[in-house]
């Protein structure tokens, strides 16, 4: 195993009790707002309503309306406001109710947040965090089920985090808030209730460091966000047949810890990439290209990709299940990869 890949971290002494991914995010914001008066939170229903997914519970009560700001439904407007405030030296956390609404704010994110440092020759920073949950699985159909990791990871100037565990949700969000660059923080709707250990107030998860979620020597599986859990259950299935998979979670897509991914693939000679987004020009396509560049000669089989089906998300439950990656899809992809031995 690469020395860089953090293994599943032990709970810190201060936070022994397992907490949900949701509560881990709340803790991160509460601690950072306590630590730094320039941090404030804004978004739709983040205050009195305590967030559409209750991630901001208790924050209005503790920090007041100056620092926890309920916004109108104006995503482009308040993301832009956050960028301006960040240029002035504040550290805004902007919550978008879901990733789907980020599309309305894409001009602000791509043309302003990602560009102001560069195009003005380093005169200003943009220490902004835009948090948003994404993903499908709740029969929300075509417009409310996006996984847009690839869109954001495409853009130089942005950083992109996609935590899979409560520990990373907290540690990465704290790192994001302290970062001097704009961070797109992609939460997973399907993981908010997931429980696990979290770090203490000073435990940050650095960007650009992948985590090994499972050790194995037969095949590397790179899995993003919620797909880590789908993949781990697939890996357990495969282990029953004596196939041991190494599961690597990049944790951040920009910066990307290609070294840890490549080191694992060099050991196993096989790679499967699992993402919730679409297959065309997706995260998996990019990771496959990067891995081919890094370790083509070490591969014993073509890299396999598992993704959502190349369709808008359907409403019908059975079709939604068919469109989303399932453990069986991962098992099949690993078998296919091994069959090419």
């Amino acid at each position: 195993m690469s020395t860089k890949a953090a293994s599943a971290p032990a709970a810190s002494p201060g936070a022994a009790k397992p907490v949900s991914y949701r509560e881990a995010l709340t803790q991160a914001m509460r601690e950072e707002m306590q630590r730094d008066p320039s941090v404030f939170l804004m978004g739709e229903d983040v205050g009195r309503y305590e967030g559409a997914f209750k991630v901001t519970r208790g924050l209005l009560r503790e920090f007041g309306e100056r620092r926890v700001v309920d916004t109108p439904i104006s995503e482009a407007g308040f993301v832009g406001l956050g960028i301006g405030a960040a240029m002035a030296g504040l550290r805004p956390i902007v919550e978008l109710m879901t990733v789907n609404f980020s599309i309305v704010a894409m001009d602000q994110i791509v043309n302003n947040a990602a560009k102001v440092r560069y195009m003005f020759g380093g005169q200003v920073a943009c220490p902004l965090v835009v948090r948003m949950p994404g993903g499908a699985g709740h029969q929300l159909a075509a417009q409310h089920s996006h996984s847009l990791e690839a869109w954001f990871a495409h853009i130089p100037g942005l950083k992109v985090a996609a935590p899979a565990t409560p520990f990373d949700a907290k540690g990465l969000l704290k790192a994001a808030i302290r970062d001097d660059d704009p961070v797109i923080f992609l939460e997973s709707e399907g993981l908010y209730a997931k429980k696990g250990p979290v770090g203490g107030p000073d435990e940050l998860v650095p960007f650009g460091r992948a985590a090994a979620r499972r050790a194995g020597s037969d095949c590397t599986i790179v899995a993003i966000s919620r797909m880590v859990w789908i993949t781990l259950s697939a890996a357990e299935e495969l282990a029953k047949e004596g196939i041991e998979c190494e599961v690597i979670d990049p944790r951040t897509l920009r910066p990307l810890d290609i070294e840890t991914l490549a080191a694992s693939v060099r050991r196993t000679s096989r790679a499967v990439i699992v993402e919730e987004g679409w297959p065309e020009c997706g995260v998996g396509a990019n990771l496959a290209a990067r891995l081919y560049e890094e370790c083509f000669d070490d591969l014993d089989a073509p890299i396999a990709r598992v993704s959502s089906a190349d369709v808008p998300m359907p409403y019908a439950k059975n079709l939604e299940m068919a469109a989303l990656p399932q453990p069986a899809d991962v098992v099949a992809a690993v078998r296919r990869t091994l069959g090419a031995r």
Binding site: V79, L81, G89, Q108, N112
Partner: peptide, 24 residues
């Protein structure tokens, strides 16, 4: 002077953010 921007209208909310920071 917080800049010239190439997308029509795109810099307006930034100024509101600068105003927000003043108020904050």
């Amino acid at each position: 002077f917080y800049g010239g921007y190439g997308i029509v209208g795109g810099s307006i909310p930034l100024a509101v953010g600068l105003g927000f920071a003043i108020s904050y």
